[in-house]
Design a protein around this nucleic acid. Structure first.
Length: 507
RNA sequence: GCCGCGUUGGUCAAGGGGUUAAGACGCCUCCCUUUCACGGAGGAGUCACGGGUUCGAUUCCCGUACGUGGUACCA
């Protein structure tokens, strides 16, 4: 049974933009496809851009998407706790750091941030703009490799702030197999001595990812491509601590790109599309970032479009339900190259999903959106009839109000400019008389209205086409919507006459 | 700078030594509709570049360019 794991920094920017949700989605699809479990672990460290309320927000988003984890801080499970801070309190990471030091694979480093800064400055050259704390430089720094045992014990006894760093071996080739990219090779001398345990006792990602995956018996780990360069550190840690054969299988997912470079929150604001699943209110800046949900996306469409950004089934099918995605998903069909997010295509997905939604289902979803509007939702039968008329014209759920409000309330603004240029006395007389004829109709219905209209037009010798646009604007307010006579039929005799009379005053 | 990863139309992409190089979004034209959508029929547009290997390369190899990521006591 497979067990896949995803981990998050509890801030929407650090964890749940488009790329983050897709990582969770692929984890979910893979796990469910294999009949396995998937686990979420939270990286709630101070330096992980921890944001108050973000953890709950993240799970709300996953819930909306329908891809909740089997085990997490919120859902429990046998491998908890799932928050890094809680695991640290249990001393989980310290013991493995100690073991690494004892075995000579790691060492204490006492360098202050200022000293590190100085080192980077002193050794900076044109060819090497960012010197690393590596095998070249570690012997010039203040650590348990350069200090003698007494000095080290003394410093520690005095409570000197220190970190634990991995001692990267020299000239070793580390290779592993990535499920998407095949064999990946790295030269250990090129990687720096990463910090494993910070001065506050918290592990860095490097230590935590290995220790937790071992303890939680993770079999598959998916993460973003940005982790590829530090993968050799993780492979080495597995080798030192638990044995390379116990290591989970890795998959490094391609990046999701914005219009220019890696997709960022700024891109959303700049180009006018959401980058988060749901609205996020930053309570420090009071800045609201609109989410796909609030924009009017269906969660089904959202995960569908996200799944297809970097993966495809190898067939011509593009519309998938969650169940189909689970069934068809396979990691070896995931692309290795990054994909640029195309909002136009995203809208198409949503439109397709809306068109495919049964009317009652559509009603259920828009009711919360319009319950405070002028649209009366108490008459279910009428509401569903109107939905049937305008549903296919909505790209977003939120389009419904504009597409349907005139069925419920008299339009306040009329697109007079669409009528004015061709308006004349003749037409005005036509409508005056049309009102009388409409009043005389006993059985208000599509055919009756259309007959009256056409007969009168013939009688007046005006082309019906020239009269339909004015009538539409009178009833709708603009040049859109279903056939005019259908609209008249639905809004009723009195309201139709009232709107024509009102319009004649302003034309 | 160094290292990693990548590169099929504007975008998502199928394919993979011999093909008229699928399909979708977007764009354009026409039909339907005396509105707008929906729907239908067409159209324009592509294998980054240079070398190999080969009878033959978009496909395999090597360079170059470009993009992107890493180079933190961030993840």
């Amino acid at each position: 049974m497979s067990k896949v794991r995803v981990r998050f920094a509890p801030s929407p920017t650090g964890g749940l933009h488009l790329g983050g949700v897709r990582t969770v989605l692929y984890n979910y699809l893979f796990a469910k496809n294999k009949g396995g479990d998937f686990i979420v672990r939270i990286e709630d460290t101070d330096q992980a851009r921890f944001v108050e309320g973000a953890e709950q927000y993240i799970f709300d988003c996953l819930k909306w998407c329908g891809i909740e984890p089997d085990e997490s801080p919120l859902h429990g499970g046998e491998y908890g706790p799932y928050r890094q801070s809680e695991r640290k309190e249990l001393g989980i990471y310290q013991q493995y750091a100690d073991k690494l030091i004892k075995d000579g694979h790691a060492y204490y480093a006492f360098d202050t941030p200022e000293e590190l800064e100085k080192m980077r400055n002193d050794f900076k050259t044109a060819e090497n703009p960012s010197p690393q704390y590596d095998h070249h430089l570690r012997m010039k720094m203040k650590n348990s490799l350069t200090l003698n045992e007494d000095e080290v014990n003394n410093l520690i006894a005095k409570g000197t702030r220190h970190v634990v760093r991995i001692k990267m071996p020299e000239n070793e080739i580390i290779s592993f197999t990535d499920m998407i990219r095949g064999e990946i090779k790295n030269e250990t001398s090129l990687v720096d001595d990463k910090v494993l345990l910070k001065a506050d006792g918290m592990p860095t990602y490097h230590l935590a990812v290995v220790v937790d995956d071992y303890l939680m018996e993770i079999t598959h780990a998916f993460r973003g491509e940005e982790w590829l360069p530090s993968a050799p550190v993780h492979v080495l840690l597995w080798k030192y601590l638990f044995g390379a054969d116990k290591m989970p299988e890795w998959a490094h997912l391609p990046l999701i790109l914005g219009p220019s470079g890696k997709l960022s929150k700024r891109d959303g604001a700049k180009y006018g599309f959401p980058v988060f699943a749901m609205n996020w209110l930053d309570n420090k800046t009071n800045e609201l970032t609109e989410g796909f949900k609030e924009k009017g996306f269906l969660p089904e469409a959202f995960i569908n479009l996200l799944a297809l950004l970097g993966w495809n089934a190898g067939t011509e099918q593009e519309l998938f339900t969650k169940e189909e995605l689970i069934e068809k998903f396979s990691i070896d069909r995931v692309h290795s190259g990054g994909a640029k997010f195309d909002y136009e295509k995203a809208k198409w997905f949503n439109h397709e999903w809306i068109k495919g939604l049964p009317i009652s289902d559509f009603r259920f979803r828009i009711e919360p959106l319009i319950q405070d509007s002028k649209i009366d939702i108490s008459d279910t039968e009428k509401l569903e009839k109107i939905i049937g008329l305008v549903k296919d014209r909505c790209t977003f759920l939120t389009d419904f109000y504009d597409q349907a409000s005139y069925f419920f309330v008299t339009p306040e603004i009329l697109d007079v400019d669409a009528v004015k240029p061709k308006w004349n006395e003749e037409k005005k007389n036509f409508f005056l008389e049309f009102i009388n004829k409409l009043s005389a109709i006993e059985n208000w219905g599509l055919e009756a209205i259309e007959d009256v209209f056409k007969n009168l037009a013939t009688e007046k010798n005006i082309k019906p086409g020239e009269l339909q646009m004015p009538l539409r604007v009178m009833l709708v307010g603009g040049k859109f919507g279903p056939p005019v006579f259908v609209i008249a039929e639905n809004i009723g005799k009195a309201e139709t006459i009232k709107r024509i009379e009102n319009a004649l005053k302003v034309f």
